[in-house]
């Protein structure tokens, strides 16, 4: 028979847990809204950047001496995976799915005889994978997006990637992140950053008749040399924004169900508590009555 005092303690502890989870849910909801607005507002820049890059790049495709960031190094031996997770937990499957996907991807690439390098953005995946892939990890960046993702932070990560690429440390770069669909669902997405994949220009041409001819100032080479690193920053920025919106969405959902579970638990504990109390009173009454009868 459970002790009344224990039950009472248990109920009050579940109640305070519920308070915490519902507060976290509220915070996550507010942050989610902000992150979504941020992602929305960042879209025009990315769209225009992509349009520009596509028109410059399509004029360079197949030309000798195209920058390696566009055309690739001609090899596919070393892969760099950029893995975006959160710095904090308590957000359902958010970190777990990314970690699992990364592990799968890394093993597949290794099975094909390729070298895998890992760059972590956010602490969680690093914590989980650092033992398994200890010698593949190049770096881990943490503390991003604590107060909303800043473009400069994304640019910092992009610079790191570019510096490594120029030093010839990898051939192909892929970023793994959660694409935000709704607060309930996040889609694990792999996106290739280097070599940059030019949008199928056939589609564009088919839609608009002929590709418009632009004048380039100073010239294509110089523009693309400036555009590519910037575009990298934009791509990383977009990924981080999506990832941060997903994180808050996932946390909101997780905390919502945690709050609901705590509510169910309180109900059932209260029921047990009342029953036990009732049984206790009944027992005492029986004792008193039988005592009186014995006299």
């Amino acid at each position: 028979m459970p002790n009344l005092k224990d039950l009472k303690n248990r109920i009050s502890s579940v109640k305070s847990t519920q308070k915490i989870t519902s507060a976290m849910k509220m915070v996550a909801a507010a942050k989610l809204r902000r992150a979504q607005e941020g992602a929305e507002a960042a879209r025009p820049y990315a769209e225009r950047m992509e349009r520009m890059l596509n028109s410059v790049a399509s004029s360079m495709v197949g030309v000798d001496g195209a920058p390696p960031m566009l055309a690739g190094t001609g090899k596919q031996d070393t892969h760099l995976l950029v893995v975006c997770t959160a710095d904090r937990g308590l957000c359902g499957g958010f970190n777990g799915t990314i970690t699992r996907q990364t592990r799968k991807l890394a093993h597949e690439l290794k099975a094909q005889g390729k070298t895998v390098k890992l760059l972590f953005v956010g602490r969680k995946a690093h914590d989980v994978l650092k033992r398994e892939f200890a010698d593949s990890i190049v770096d881990a960046v943490t503390g991003i997006g604590r107060r909303g993702v800043e473009f400069t932070e994304a640019m910092g990560v992009a610079d790191k990637i570019i510096t490594m690429f120029e030093a010839g440390e990898f051939d192909v770069c892929t970023i793994v992140f959660n694409r935000f669909q709704s607060a309930m669902t996040q889609i694990v997405t792999e996106q290739q950053l280097i070599p940059f994949s030019v949008a199928e220009s056939e589609d564009v041409e088919a839609a608009s008749g002929a590709q418009p001819v632009y004048i380039y100032e100073p010239d294509e080479d110089e523009i693309i040399a400036e555009l590519l690193p910037r575009n990298m920053g934009v791509q990383v920025f977009q990924a981080l924004l999506e990832s941060s919106a997903s994180e808050h969405g996932a946390r909101m959902t997780a905390m919502d169900s945690a709050t609901r579970n705590a509510g169910d638990m309180i109900d059932s504990l209260t029921l047990t508590y009342n029953r036990t109390r009732q049984a206790f009173i009944t027992k005492e009454l029986i004792e008193i009555i039988s005592g009186a009868e014995a006299l």
Binding site: F151, E217, P218
Partner: peptide, 26 residues
């Protein structure tokens, strides 16, 4: 249109705009 990575800052119809291009003002 003036666009920053964070957001679309300005979008309006103007008669003329002079911008500092890489090779000189345009």
């Amino acid at each position: 249109e003036l666009v920053s990575p964070q957001k679309l800052l300005k979008s309006e119809a103007v008669e003329m705009v002079v911008v500092p291009g890489g090779d000189g003002d345009i």
